[in-house]
Computed example of a mutant assay.
Amino acid sequence: MSDSNLKSLALDLASGEFPRSPRETLGGYVVAARTLDKCRAVLAGTNGEYHFDCPLDGFFLSFTGISADDFKAFVATGADDEAVAKWINENAKSRERRDIIKWNNEMRCKHISEMPIELQEFLEDYIPECIPAGKIVYVWFDVYDIEEGRI
């Protein structure tokens, strides 16, 4: 795998493409596919306003026990989605499948009031500035999917 492979896989988030929804799974984990999309874009210099290792990515990385640096180093090899999924499963903290399912569902249903206060404060201003009037944010993932036009 190579740098050219990485560039061909990286989305151009600076020019209007969006990373995948945090609801999509990779290697069996929600958030992972989005984290990968942002990481590739950062490595390719096409991330625009998107950040890798943001608080959302941190939830995934913390749960799996994978460091942002290790994840980024592997992604930099130009690995495709299948290879990254395999790498995640080989490097994630060992957990029962039912624990991963429970975490996925907790993340899918996480209300803003259940988040650390720093994120609540950030979203208090971010939502009215970036979410169209009339759109209701029921759970945290809605913020991304509404803003990026998926719902």
Results as ranks from 00 to 15, higher is better:
I66T: 10
N89V: 04
Y144C: 09
I146T: 03
C54Q: 01
D99H: 12
P128S: 00
P132Q: 04
G28Q: 07
P55L: 11
I146C: 02
E124H: 09
A10P: 06
P116R: 04
R20K: 15
P19S: 01
G27F: 09
A85R: 01
D142Q: 05
A83I: 04
D99E: 15
S8Y: 01
R34W: 14
I131F: 06
E49A: 13
D80Q: 05
V84Q: 01
D145F: 04
D125F: 05
C54I: 02
T35A: 15
R95D: 04
D80E: 09
G27K: 12
G65E: 08
K72D: 00
F60M: 13
M115A: 08
N89F: 03
A133D: 09
G78F: 12
R108Y: 11
A32N: 14
E82M: 08
L61C: 03
A14F: 11
F63K: 06
D12C: 08
N104T: 11
G58L: 14
A33W: 13
S2L: 08
G65T: 07
G48D: 12
E129Q: 10
S2W: 04
D12A: 06
I131Y: 08
F63H: 08
M1H: 14
I131L: 07
L6D: 11
Q120G: 07
N91E: 03
H111Y: 10
A73L: 05
P116L: 05
E148K: 11
A79E: 01
D70K: 06
K86A: 13
E121T: 10
T35D: 09
D70Q: 07
V139Q: 11
S15N: 15
S4P: 02
H51C: 09
A83Y: 03
L9Y: 09
L56I: 15
I88K: 11
I131M: 06
V30D: 09
A85L: 04
D80A: 11
I101T: 12
A76H: 09
A76W: 10
K93V: 05
W103Q: 14
D53V: 13
S94K: 13
E96S: 10
D99M: 10
